[in-house]
Computed example of a mutant assay.
Amino acid sequence: MKIVFFDARVWRYLVSAISKVIEEGVFVVDPEEGLMFRAMDPSHVIMLDMRFPRDSFEEFDVEQRTELGVNLEDVAKILRRASKEDRLEITADEDSISFAFIGKSYRKFTLPLLDITAEQLPEPQLEFKANIKVMSDVYRDTIKDVELIGDVIRFVASSDEFKVASSSELGEAEIIYTRESGSLIDLVVEDMQQASYTLEYFSDLSGASRVADTITIQFSTDMPALVEHELPQGAKFSFLIAPRVE
């Protein structure tokens, strides 16, 4: 098995973010579908889903569906060595997986594969009443703002604005985006929707937004939220997080 992706930094930021939530996981490589990763955190609060279609790779030499169990923290350490111009080559055999940076030099790192299997997690069947799309830098700044105050993030969406808030004994943070401000790419809301979530997960995963073009947040009142990252070459990273119901 050998696959090559045009920008190693995309993988660097994605895996670094994922490794803060999940220690071990399985990359599934399929000759038709591409590369997939889906897993839940140990507390079953959040489910992560990463997908790179076959066509997103410069080279995709995969003969059969393969599961690659890895220690994500170890992979993240290697990928942090990615430089600006590096492409990423991933190869694997029965016992090991290798990550190589193709740039000014060829740098290859090999790790043992773990004897774990991919979780069989069904596709969530949810209908969301609020759909908000923003630029990735807007999303990332919002997370940084609410981190200053509390440990719970609250979404409130109406037909003309999207509000993100957090409060604690320290005080309150409130960020409001409107159609007029130009910060919203899209806003579709049925009635008013509001829900709260554990901020720590958003903080841990915010690094993934550094390589995303846009972020879409979907939720309904006191229901799970789905946060989708649009990545280069048609790839996607999303997470589904359970609400905090006070």
Rank of each mutant, 00 (worst) to 15 (best):
K84G: 04
E172M: 13
A82G: 10
L68N: 03
E172C: 07
E127G: 07
A118I: 03
D141A: 06
K133G: 00
L68F: 04
E94K: 07
L111P: 10
E127K: 12
D61Q: 12
T142P: 05
E174M: 11
L184E: 06
F101T: 09
E73K: 15
K108G: 10
A92E: 08
T91P: 03
E94R: 05
L184H: 02
S96F: 04
L88R: 11
S136N: 15
M192E: 14
G182T: 10
D141G: 04
T178E: 10
I185C: 01
V146K: 01
R80E: 13
P124N: 06
P112T: 06
E59T: 14
T142A: 08
I116V: 12
S98V: 05
L184A: 07
V62H: 11
I143K: 01
R140L: 09
I153Y: 01
E58C: 06
D191W: 05
M192K: 15
V62N: 11
F155H: 03
F57E: 06
E67I: 07
D145M: 03
N131P: 01
Q194E: 14
G150A: 01
L184T: 07
D61F: 05
R65L: 11
I78H: 10
E85W: 05
D74V: 06
R87Y: 07
S181C: 08
I132H: 00
L72Y: 15
D61P: 05
F60M: 08
N131A: 02
L199I: 05
I149D: 00
Y139V: 10
N71I: 12
E169K: 11
V164L: 07
L126K: 07
E174A: 13
P122Q: 08
R81Y: 08
V156M: 02
Y106H: 12
V62C: 12
P112Y: 04
A82I: 10
S168N: 10
R81M: 12
I97P: 09
V134R: 02
A82S: 12
V188D: 13
Q120H: 11
K104R: 15
T142S: 09
E89P: 04
K108E: 15
L170V: 13
S183W: 06
L72W: 14
T66L: 05
Y197D: 08
E169V: 13
L114M: 09
S98A: 14
V189L: 04
L79K: 10
E174Q: 14
F128P: 02
P124K: 03
G150F: 02
I102T: 06
K104P: 08
N131D: 13
Q64W: 02
R140H: 09
Y177M: 15
E127P: 01
D186Q: 12
I153K: 02
F101Q: 08
P124M: 08
K84W: 04
D115E: 11
L79T: 14
D186H: 08
F99H: 11
G182M: 08
D160Y: 03
Y106Q: 11
T66D: 08
A130L: 00
I176F: 09
K133H: 03
A100N: 06
I132P: 06
R154K: 13
T66C: 09
V146S: 00
K144Y: 03
Q193N: 09
N71H: 13
I116Q: 05
S105E: 13
I78L: 12
L79M: 14
S168W: 03
D86A: 04
I176T: 12
E123I: 00
D74W: 05
D74M: 12
N131Y: 02
Y139Q: 07
S181Y: 06
I176Q: 13
I78T: 14
L148Q: 10
P112L: 06
D186S: 14
V138F: 04
